[in-house]
Structure formats: C-alpha cells, structure tokens
Amino acid sequence: MGEHRSGTDERRDDTAPVILAGAPDTFARSVFHDRHPKLIERVIGAHPYGEAERTALRELLDETLHGTVSPLRTTAADATSWARWGEPWWGREWGELPFLWAESYFYRRLLEAVGYFRAGVWQGVDPFGPTKDAELGSAEVAGELAALDELATAPEPAQRDALSMSALWGNQADLGFQLVSGSGGRSGGLLVDDRRELWAALDAAPAARLHLIADNAGRELLPDLALLDHLLVTGRVAAATLWLKPQPYFTSDATMTDLLAALRRLRVAGAGTAAGRLGDRLWQALSTGTLSARTHEFFCAPAGFDEMPDDLRAALDGAALTVCKGDLNYRRLVGDRYLPPTTPFADRAGYFPTPVAALRTLKSDVITGLTAGQVAALDATGQPWRSNGEHALIQCAR
C-alpha cells in the first residue's frame, strides 16, 4: 500500500487563509494570551527552578505577548533546522506568525528557558513531567485499567470498537475502557465516523504494518497502547510502529520516557489482571520488534505533514494504514487554515504516503469533512464547538 500516492507532486489547494497567532477574537490568540501565562506559572511551580530559569520563562512570555520573534541562541542539535524554519519570521511580532509555527516555537523556546538542552542539572528534565506522573497515578486511570478485565470478556468486535472510541476521546472519555458498547454516551459528539473504512484499509492488506503517530502521554496514551495490542493479538496487523516526540512538546505530547512510564503503569497492575497482561505483551512486543517505537526531528517541526522529509516519508511508505492521533496531528495533516468545514477530508490528506486515518477530538478551529447541515446546526448552538473538546472525528482517506 502507499505506492499509488504521489506525495509531494500531488499539491493541495492552499488558498484558505492561514490561522495566525494573534488575530483578534480568535481561539489562536486566546492560547497565547490566556493559556500561556497560566502554563508558564505552572511550569515554574513544577520544579524548583533557579532564578535564571524562572526569569527566562517570564521573559519568553513577555516576548510572545509584546515583542518580536528572536532566534535560538544555542548549539543544540536542532539549532540549524530552527535557523532555517525561522528565516521568514525573525523580527516579526508573534501575533503575525502562523499559529502552528508560533506554538511550536514557543514550546521549543520554553525548553531552552528551563535548560533542557544545556549541560547542567536541568538537562533532559521534562518540565511537564510532574503533571504527566500525577495523571498516570490518578484514581481515574486505576478505574479505567480495572475496567479492562470486563472488556476482555466482550466479543472481539465490541472490544475493537470500545478501544477505538477510547483512543479517540482520550481523557475526555469519562468511562474510559468501559466503552464496551462502543459509544459510552459520547456518540452524539462524533461528527464523522469512518471506522468501517479504517478497518477496511487494514483488511485490504493482511499481515501488514500499522503506524500510529501518538499525541498525548498519560491517560491518553494508555488506550492507544491497548488498541495497538488488540490489533496485534487479533492478527489484524502483523507489526506496528508507534511514533513519539523526540522531546517534551505541547505540554503533554508523548516521548519515549512517557511510553516506558505507561508500560510500567500497566505492568504494576499485576499478573492476574488484564492490564498487567497487556503491559507484559507490549513489553515483549517491543523486545522482539513486533511493536517498534520510533521518533524523528520532524515531529517537533513547525510544519505540516505535506512537508515531511524524504527519510520519514520512506519510513511510513508501504504500511497498510497510518493513524494520526489528536488535534495537533490533525492540524499538521490537513493544514492549519480556515478551511471551509465541508472540504472533503481526502482532498486535504490525499498526499499522505499511506492510507491515513485521523482520530481527533476538536480542540482548534481546523475542520474538514462535515455536511452543510452539520455546520449550520453546530453554529446555531452558539457554542465554540470547534475548540471545546466536545466533538470528535474519525476520518479515513485511502
């Protein structure tokens, strides 16, 4: 699979306006002006950072709100790439930047501020680690892992649908793994449901590889792992690759450290539990290569997947399906633009080197694949339905 897709010589119509970071009365502006100040204070409180780190974090916030974009001052491995990515934007006001670029650079600068890349005591220390750890140790996670015992006795189609819905909703899935019916009371929020096409893509290529581009760690990574295990155990796929971020990113995106923490959380549930057996199987699958964990610098790049480098495209090509999890990956897949909501998903994702499915809870303005009737009904509610996390999509382009 994948050979029918021409990649970079199949260009999208990108005439829709790019979402900018500082446009008045937009969700993007609220991220920088409402969310980031709170985030900076939370990061400061997460570790006993010294005065230098605290000052650098607050200076970063001040720059994003009132200043112009300055380049990295570092010899870190990605400095050359950022110099290239930022060439069009240095010296511009942050609000003039594309939202996707500005957010990505904000998080890269945040890591610089806390000394993540510098030699010293804070090198390699995840500024978001305490929040991730607290979530994995929460009572909600304990209850969801216990519910795996009930799910293990359900018929295979019910298990598959329950796990795919849990992977879709992540920490929005109030009942977690107890979604045995496949709806869990959230079906009204599912605007597009291409699960049939998703399974058909796997059925069309037996004994093939699946890629899953992960989104968040903790409570959202656990159902992703459970879904991968189910597909491997049932033989729906012969092998799977889980793509992770190379460094902490967007507060809670999953790294290799987060994957190991999730596996340990599963395994400590005990040998007599479904969660414990799941953790042991995945641990063994990683050891044998049936499940591979990989990363690439591009997953922290401020660009869409249509700009992925040739080596990453080659690594993905040939798979039966790539599953893109979460809102950020969706923005990178279809383009971070004010697209007409009725734009067909396949028109925006058809360049991808494999058949691709998006499992996404809506947390930003980008949307494709809806009917005009859906859009009218959602707009009539007066609610910020594009960004409040109450709606979701399962979309597939083959």
Rank of each mutant, 00 (worst) to 15 (best):
R118W: 04
Q395E: 14
R54I: 12
R332D: 02
Q178P: 04
A21C: 10
Y338I: 07
Y116C: 01
F250I: 15
G184M: 08
L359G: 00
G350W: 01
A301I: 07
A238E: 14
D14G: 02
V237I: 14
A113S: 15
T74V: 12
G270P: 04
T75V: 12
A240R: 03
E144K: 11
L202C: 04
D14Y: 03
A52W: 10
R186G: 00
I394K: 00
F117D: 09
E53A: 15
D306Q: 12
T288H: 12
G279I: 09
S183C: 15
A217F: 07
S70V: 14
H47M: 11
S364K: 01
P309R: 09
Y116M: 04
P355A: 13
H211E: 02
P17A: 11
A377G: 07
Y338S: 10
D149T: 08
E103F: 02
A315Q: 13
Y338V: 09
L175V: 15
Q284N: 14
F298L: 10
Q247N: 07
E51S: 14
R267Q: 15
Y338P: 00
V125T: 13
L65H: 03
L291V: 08
Y249G: 02
Q383N: 08
E156D: 14
L278M: 13
P130G: 05
A346D: 13
T295R: 13
W90K: 08
R313P: 00
A315R: 09
H66C: 12
G373L: 11
